[in-house]
């Protein structure tokens, strides 16, 4: 029982990272139907920014987190403006390849500028372990969970309560109709990229604290896993991405805990395929049938 609870806590910590990343995938997909392959690399940028400001300016965790979110939001918006906006009316597969190109660019550009080696992320928050009932939980895990939850609640508030959030939902449903009622889709899409990228940047700083090490290719695998999480949850659905993220995190730690860590990736994909076969639009996604 103890070990199960312990794994749940570990799984939730990892899952909240996936969830933060999955939210960006799902928002961008929901609005322009693009699998933003470079999203995982935005998360890497966030981690590197955190590394840089903490080491250079000795800022605390909150400043590092917030500044990383601002920087990655800008990066996301610039990428959208330069690489994706010219392709708004092109075949979707073209935009996908461009996103892959952006991903290669970020990964290799960072390797070129800063070297491909792994670095230790500065421990700006001293790790403490709390033990209760035989379960150990670190302050960093608590920090990750709390930060992730706060960000998700904020996101939900932005989407549901603000004018921009309403515009985002409108553009996601029908871009042309939204433009007709006076919404500028370009602004909304740009804002969506900024929002999603900020969450990824936050996830980057959090993972730096949690795993202690960062490198230019660190975004690849979590990026794909987070995308899987978004699909499992129902791509385009914001709550779905959160649920999917936690689910994938729990699944991975669970499979690892029963001694099958070699199969942890396979387990994730098996669950993905099974869910898609039963629910082709994911757990919380809407299955839209084509009208004849």
């Amino acid at each position: 029982m103890h070990t199960v609870l312990q794994q749940v806590i570990n799984g939730l910590s990892l899952g909240s990272i996936y969830a933060l990343l999955a939210l960006g995938y799902t928002m961008v997909y929901g609005i322009i139907k693009l699998i933003n392959f470079a999203h995982g690399d935005i998360y890497m940028l966030g981690a590197f920014w955190g590394y840089y400001v903490i080491n250079t300016y000795h800022v605390d965790f909150i400043v590092a987190l917030l500044s990383a979110m601002i920087v990655t939001a800008l990066a996301g918006m610039i990428i959208e403006y330069l690489a994706y906006r010219p392709l708004r009316n092109s075949p979707r597969i073209t935009a996908l390849i461009t996103a892959i190109g952006v991903s290669y660019f970020l990964e290799n550009g960072m390797s070129y500028l800063f070297g491909a080696n792994t670095r230790n992320f500065p421990q700006v928050v001293k790790q403490h372990n709390f033990t209760a009932l035989g379960i150990s939980i670190s302050n960093i895990q608590v920090l990750i969970l709390v930060t992730a939850l706060i960000l998700m609640i904020l996101l939900q508030l932005i989407i549901q309560k603000t004018k921009m959030g309403t515009a985002m939902r409108a553009v996601a449903v029908d871009q042309e109709a939204a433009a007709l009622v006076g919404i500028n889709p370009d602004h909304v899409i740009s804002f969506t990229f900024g929002l999603g990228s900020a969450l990824a940047g936050a996830a980057g700083v959090l993972i730096g604290l949690y795993y202690n090490s960062i490198d230019p290719l660190m975004g690849m695998t979590p990026g794909i896993k987070a995308f899987v999480a978004a699909v499992v949850g129902g791509i385009g659905s914001v709550p779905g991405a959160a649920v999917g993220g936690f689910l994938i995190g729990l699944l991975e730690t669970g499979v690892q805990a029963i001694g099958l860590s070699a199969y942890k990736d396979a387990a994730v994909y098996v669950v993905l395929i099974l869910i898609l076969i039963v629910l082709p639009a994911g757990l919380l996604g809407k299955n839209v049938k084509e009208k004849v």
Binding site: A83, V102, F105, G109, Y112
Partner: peptide, 10 residues
């Protein structure tokens, strides 16, 4: 190499 490749692709 990969940076140039990525830019060419984009």
């Amino acid at each position: 190499r990969m940076v140039i490749y990525a830019v060419a692709l984009i």
